[in-house]
């Protein structure tokens, strides 16, 4: 009896809130679909957002997080197809949302997704072993060019961001690497620290521990500007001391991975606006800023047309690489 009464009150409250906000409001639990396994970068991203929403009570309804990381995340994006039009499935991912369908025969198309927002850009750096003789990225690339296909570049997964970046680097400089795919950034980092590979392009967050310990060393960052200055990571250097790759004479200006949020296609426009508003609020909290700083990502809120433009540009860039490498399936 009491429960029934409570439920009735809940409906009433939800109805009133909906009327007050003049827009779409959730009336049942929401599922956050994570396109990586527990512990992955996208998982951390999603759970961070979930905890901020909980803390500030931004959504009245409970949120359930489910990991669907199978097939490099394709399993999660497939939800957009199986739950078309369902505004209670929010999908969290990266740029593989629109890149995966190129390289694998999948049951969803990019058009099955409705873009909501991108909240951050993860950076890529070129790392070598700490005791390697190369002072700059240019030195290293020259060494690779002198002996093509002997230097090993590690990365996580195949036909994903790391291999794409390696391909871009090869085309831009003429340096030919052997690309070795591993399971994830952590494994790649250990392989470099142990001297089994010569370099990798990990995100800052994946290799900060080993940089601190003096096992690996960043040569340059694939970003148009240097990373923001923070506390020093090693005794002498901080993130801002790393030159951009362009400064170091490597003609690759920018390579960043957006952390993105999607809804299935056919969801009401009001729902898209609702989540966009929530995520905007999330991105303005001190907790979010703290997360961005700690993981050395670039905080940038993209939605609507700015997001569409970013996606179009990134899509074009990656597509060129995929075509050149012959990765596109059909």
């Amino acid at each position: 009896m009491a429960r029934k009464f409570g439920m009735a009150l809940g409906f009433l409250a939800a109805g009133m809130a909906g009327a007050a906000a003049q827009g779409w409001q959730p009336t049942k639990p929401i599922e956050f679909v994570v396109t990586s396994s527990p512990g992955g970068g996208t998982d951390n991203f999603t759970r961070m957002i979930q905890s901020i929403i909980l803390k500030y009570k931004l959504i009245d309804q409970p949120i359930v997080v489910s990991n669907k990381g199978g097939g490099s995340g394709a399993e999660g994006y497939l939800v957009s197809k199986t739950s078309a039009g369902d505004p209670y499935k929010v999908i969290f991912g990266t740029n593989n949302a629109y890149l995966l369908p190129y390289v694998a025969k999948l049951g969803y198309k990019f058009s099955d997704l409705t873009p909501v927002a991108a909240l951050a850009l993860d950076e890529f750096l070129l790392w070598v072993k700490a005791d390697a003789p190369y002072k700059t990225a240019k030195d290293y690339v020259e060494a690779v060019k002198a002996k093509p296909e002997t230097y090993k570049m590690g990365g996580s997964q195949s036909k994903d961001t790391d291999q794409t970046l390696t391909s871009i680097l090869s085309t831009a400089t003429g340096a030919k690497f052997i690309y070795v795919p591993f399971q994830g950034g952590g494994a790649v980092g250990t392989q470099l620290a142990g001297g089994h590979i010569n370099s990798h392009t990990n995100n800052p967050n994946e290799s900060i521990g080993q940089w601190k310990a003096g096992q690996v060393r960043p040569l340059c960052v694939f970003s148009p500007t240097r990373l923001p200055a923070g506390p020093k990571v090693t005794e002498t250097q901080g993130w801002a001391d790393i030159p951009t790759c362009k400064e170091s004479g490597i003609p690759v200006e920018r390579f960043q991975m957006p952390r993105t949020v999607w809804l299935p296609a056919g969801t009401p426009a009001g729902a898209v606006q609702f989540y966009e508003g929530i995520l905007k609020k999330v991105s303005e909290t001190p907790e979010w800023q703290e997360y961005i700083t700690r993981t050395v990502q670039t905080g940038q809120f993209l939605s609507g047309d700015s997001l569409k433009a970013f996606v179009a540009n990134d899509d074009k860039l990656s597509r060129e690489v995929f075509e050149r490498e012959g990765w596109i399936v059909k």
Partner: peptide, 13 residues
Amino acid sequence: GGLMIWGLNPGPM
């Protein structure tokens, strides 16, 4: 993943 969220960097240091 938790370690990173709590602001700790796994590694020898």
